[in-house]
């Protein structure tokens, strides 16, 4: 039951929802500890989003999540690649992964 170290990045205005911090290192507890009910062994993006909502997102969560996924219009990159190529919510998060969220919703 070890922890999982990953990096989260935010861009395109998504950082405005996360204290305007564009990069942060986070350490996820073991999945069983955080979700005792879970049948899974490993963190996927789906659980990561819940964890982020609980621990990082302080206000207006509806601007970041919709249902159990991200709000449509926010792009997710896993190690700089489109998450749509990696199973989206079901991608199993690996140690040292860089997960990036870029909003396309912000004008400019």
């Amino acid at each position: 039951m070890t922890t999982l170290k990953i990096q989260l990045q935010f861009g395109g205005g998504a950082e405005l929802l996360f204290d305007k911090i564009k990069k942060r290192e986070v350490e996820l507890p073991s999945l069983k500890k955080y979700f005792p009910e879970s049948q899974k062994e490993k963190w996927t993006i789906k659980e990561l989003l819940v964890w982020m909502k609980d621990n990082l997102l302080m206000e207006r969560p509806e601007l970041f999540v919709q249902g159990d996924s991200v709000r449509p219009g926010i792009l997710v990159l896993i190690n700089d690649a489109d998450w749509e190529l990696y199973g989206e919510l079901s991608y199993e998060v690996q140690e040292n992964d860089v997960i990036m969220f870029i909003s396309t919703l912000h004008g400019g």
């Binding site: 861009g11 205005g13 405005l16 700089d80 870029i102 912000h106 004008g107």
Partner: peptide
């Protein structure tokens, strides 16, 4: 993003 272009994004 890939071209590292700088743009401004805020409401």
């Amino acid at each position: 993003h890939y071209k590292k272009l700088v743009y401004f994004s805020t409401e």
